[in-house]
Design a protein around this nucleic acid. Structure first.
Length: 868
DNA sequence: TCGTCAGGAATTTTT
DNA sequence: TTCCTGACGA
């Protein structure tokens, strides 16, 4: 059978020679079509000067620092269109990489619009992984694989690792496969093979067997003719390094390289890009990884102002010498677009340093900053900019808008007693917006952690409010889809043992652990795939009659399906497989609530298969690209994590859960220290900048975490918002007014009488008389609606007659009551419900800095601690 | 083989 | 608290 993945010949029709200007050649191809627009092409006319510079500086390295909402995608797509239209390169000579399929798809579409046609001609536009696969298919044998290798997902990976850990005679509970999978992932993100991993890492797992296990894992993958996601990049890197001729081919081929979201690249991706971007003549390859990078981080302990203003270090690293090098290869035409302030994936290996270091990696680089924001109001931009200004180690950008409007609402900060009240209040605000004619589609709730979603979902269900959750398990991650896929995989790839094991007893056929183990062991012993091993075992007496018959049935099925593979339409065959295997019947018989949905998913799976040429092509697609479709017709509020929100925008954004411990997340602080905090702050920045017009931030005083009620204090990020752009809503609740957020239930019980004397308390008392009956957030509390939207016209149709004093402009109450002397003194011994005992080391208003015996130094409000 | 119970872990996520 | 995993017994 010919390799179905070889659809695009390596030496494409245009050859490797410099691209001719295709203008005159009567009209095939995108480039030619684009040339239809002759003079100042209209794709350039709508751009602002900076954008235009980013588009038109086609030669040499370019870093585009694109702040949120500054037209990043537009620049990227226009730049490609420009390159093509100018005849600088053929579509097949442009390498354009993104992180997600969604981004790749979007880019394709938009280039198509610009250039006036489909973009099939851009074979090298895709995700890092899909391009990695494409390379690897072509040179698989150089990585010890066959070109039809399968791609394992995380689930397969973990099952495989578990087998290996057990095979080593290790306790797989003490050394969880999941954890080891994460370690391997981390190594691969850095481009480490088993030989490269640091000794410490190797020892950290499985009594020092880390390296051994990693090696075993890679060996096993090779036998299975399989790759995990990390390999999709690591193998190509190794191939390119070991085969200079192959590398040279690619280097010549890719006249232009474009990278989206450069701040999210990990070390492996960086290495891969560097290889491709180097011009052959110069180029030391080896020192990229270890030494220099760590040197640099040591040279910059505080993460000081790296980048734009530190030309001193430019000369320390110059792998490519731009002008001075006396003709050793021109600088590469690589254009990286990103925003260091939106780097939020450090925890999965992304290295902000890559973007901070760009100018050193590519001396002579043009840096274009896009700061003109087309998305948000001046208040939102002001708030976001001020917040992110607390980070160090930035390249430094300040967003601004050309269209400030005095009527724009400020960013609103609200307090609630607990998460239930928070959800209720958010629900109310949403309904109010809806009544004012806003579409639910234009509103989103962005949470830090997914457990926060439930409360909102519950609330919206009772309200009958449409919502959609973005994120969650993807289509191809669902059990039934993976099961079905496993069947297809075994049919297409009889050696795919992982798939075989997955479904050999699904649906139940009486082939339990013992039977599977027998086949597995036999296969390992004789070095044949499990399916073949099973065939041999069935011919013997080794197995009891019952399971033997069952196994024989399975084998016969697979053999039959395999025969049909080449002469039956693949979607039809797929349906047959699921029918004959009893898999469909299994779900039909299932009485549970999910069963119908699962059957529906299976149908959808087969339906989508029809679009592909073969089952094999389909398998490839699903493992890399397929994602769930969202029903866009429905008007619904979106609920998603902050991470998932990157790149999106909404008219109205709700940001609940701004409390210490949740946001910034405690674990980010514990594990990431200062840089962890900065990443959290960037996440906050991402959240704020998703909003076009309305932005509501919430925090609660009490949150149930793992079933335990915890009193919480407002996020430090709230203190970092500028007074001029923020309104603090002061909810008059029965819990004690604004000060309410700072109070624990003990306050209510009157434990801390001092609290009653605080300005916050008194103000609350005053408000309470007129402002409300019932709780903040109750559905009938019309009065509540006005609160906090007072003095500035929020655009919600809020009333004019707000009560002065309800709106505290500026820094949170924690500071607004700072004039009140604290009841504590430095040196006092205190007790905190969560942190335990400690000593007061500093006092700032009602904020105490306390050195806790166990929890370390924390800032807490005095309402939370008790003298001991 | 399947159900039940106890124990442990409970950010963020793309490919 | 809740959910998932793994061990154990019918």
């Amino acid at each position: 059978m010919s390799n179905p993945f070889d659809d695009i010949p390596f030496d494409d029709a245009h050859g490797a020679a410099p691209a001719p200007k295709p203008a005159g050649n009567g009209g095939s191809g995108i480039a030619a079509r684009a040339m239809g627009a002759r003079q100042t092409p209209d794709y350039l006319t709508g751009l602002n000067p900076e954008q235009r510079r980013a588009v038109e500086t086609t030669e040499g390295p370019v870093l585009v620092l694109a702040g949120a909402g500054t037209g990043k995608t537009r620049v990227l797509t226009t730049r490609i269109a420009h390159i093509l239209a100018q005849g600088l390169a053929w579509p097949s000579q442009v390498l354009a990489v993104t992180f997600t399929n969604k981004a790749a798809r979007e880019m394709k579409e938009r280039i198509g619009l610009l250039v006036g046609g489909a973009v099939e001609g851009m074979p090298w536009l895709g995700t890092f992984h899909s391009i990695g696969v494409k390379m690897l298919r072509r040179h698989a044998e150089m990585a010890g694989l066959k070109s039809d290798f399968t791609i394992l997902d995380t689930d397969d990976q973990i099952r495989l690792l578990k087998q290996l850990i057990q095979a080593e005679g290790l306790d797989d509970k003490r050394w969880p496969a999941r954890q080891f999978a994460m370690m391997i992932d981390g190594w691969k993100n850095k481009g480490f093979g088993p030989a490269d991993i640091p000794e410490g890492d190797a020892r950290a797992f499985a009594n020092g067997k880390g390296r051994e296990l990693y090696t075993a894992y890679q060996d096993r993958l090779k036998t299975l003719n399989a790759c995990d996601f990390g390999d999709l990049l690591c193998h190509p890197i190794r191939v390119l390094k070991a085969n200079p001729d192959v590398l040279a081919d690619y280097q010549q081929k890719f006249k232009y390289i474009l990278v989206d979201e450069y701040q999210d690249t990990n070390t492996a991706q960086y290495l891969w890009l560097r290889l491709l971007a180097q011009r052959r003549v110069s180029a030391p390859t080896s020192p990229l990884r270890g030494g220099r990078r760590s040197e640099q981080s040591e040279a910059d302990p505080g993460g000081g102002d790296i980048g734009a203003n530190t030309p001193t270090r430019l000369d320390t690293v110059s792998p490519t010498s731009p002008q001075g090098g006396g003709g050793t290869g021109a600088p590469p035409n690589i254009c990286c677009v990103g925003d260091d302030d939106q780097s939020i994936y450090g925890w999965r290996g992304a290295d902000v340093d890559n973007i901070l270091r760009f100018e050193k990696d590519f001396p002579g680089a043009t840096v274009v900053k896009l700061e003109r924001n087309y998305r948000s109001t001046a208040h939102i931009l002001g708030a976001a900019s001020h917040l992110i200004g607390h980070n160090e180690g930035r390249l430094g950008k300040t967003l601004f808008t050309d269209a400030p409007d005095p009527d724009d609402p400020k960013v609103n900060v609200h307090a609630a007693w607990d998460s239930e009240e928070e959800a209720r209040a958010v629900g109310e605000t949403i309904e109010r917006h809806q009544r004012d004619g806003h579409k639910l589609n234009d509103m989103a709730i962005l949470v830090r952690a997914s457990f926060q979603m439930r409360e909102f979902e519950d609330r919206f269900v009772t309200l009958g409010l449409n919502y959609r959750v973005i994120g969650g398990p993807r289509f191809y991650e669902r059990m039934e889809v993976r099961d079905a896929m496993a069947y297809f995989r075994v049919v297409c790839q009889p050696a795919d043992d992982l798939a075989f094991e997955r479904i050999v007893n699904t649906p139940k056929r009486g082939l339990g652990d013992a039977s599977v183990r027998l086949v597995h062991d036999y296969a390992r012993k004789t070095g044949v795939p499990m399916l073949a091993a099973a065939e041999e075992i069935v011919a013997t007496e080794e197995m009891k009659p019952k399971p033997r018959a069952a196994l024989r049935g399975v084998i016969e099925n697979f053999r039959r399906w395999q025969e049909q593979l080449d002469n039956t339409p693949h979607a039809e065959l797929a349906e047959t497989i699921l029918e004959e295997s009893g898999y469909t019947a299994m779900w039909q018989a299932d009485r549970s609530a999910e069963a119908p949905g699962r059957l529906e998913n299976l149908k959808e799976l087969i339906r989508s298969m029809e679009e592909f040429e073969s089952m094999r092509a389909f398998l490839e697609h699903v493992s890399l690209v397929m994602d769930a479709e969202q029903n866009e017709d429905m008007d619904a509020v979106s609920i998603m994590t902050l991470h998932a929100a990157k790149g999106l925008e909404f008219d109205t954004v709700f940001l609940p859960g701004w409390e210490e411990g949740l946001f910034p997340h405690q674990r980010a602080l514990d594990e990431g220290g200062r840089s962890g905090l900065e990443e959290e702050r960037r996440l906050a920045y991402v959240g704020l900048t998703r909003a076009k017009r309305h932005c509501h931030i919430w925090f609660v005083s009490n949150r149930r975490i793992h079933g335990l009620w915890q009193s919480t204090i407002p996020s430090r990020f709230l203190d970092e918002l500028p007074t001029t752009h923020v309104d603090v809503a002061e909810p008059p609740t029965s819990y004690g007014g604004y000060g309410g957020y700072g109070q624990s239930r003990f306050d209510r019980a009157g434990t801390f009488s001092t609290k009653r004397e605080s300005p916050g308390w008194r103000r609350a008392q005053a408000n309470q008389t007129e402002a409300t009956r019932g709780n903040w957030g109750s559905r009938s509390g019309v009065a509540v609606e006005r609160i906090g939207y007072g003095e500035t016209d929020s655009g919600f149709g809020a009333g004019k007659g707000s009560v002065k004093g309800r709106v505290i402009e500026g820094e949170l109450v924690a500071k607004s009551v700072a004039d009140e002397p604290s009841a504590f003194a430095v040196g006092d011994r205190v007790f905190h419900l969560k942190f335990g005992n400690g000593n007061v080391t500093a006092i700032e208003g009602n904020k105490l800095t306390i050195a806790f015996d166990k929890a370390g130094e924390k800032k807490v409000l005095d309402g939370f601690v008790e003298a001991v």
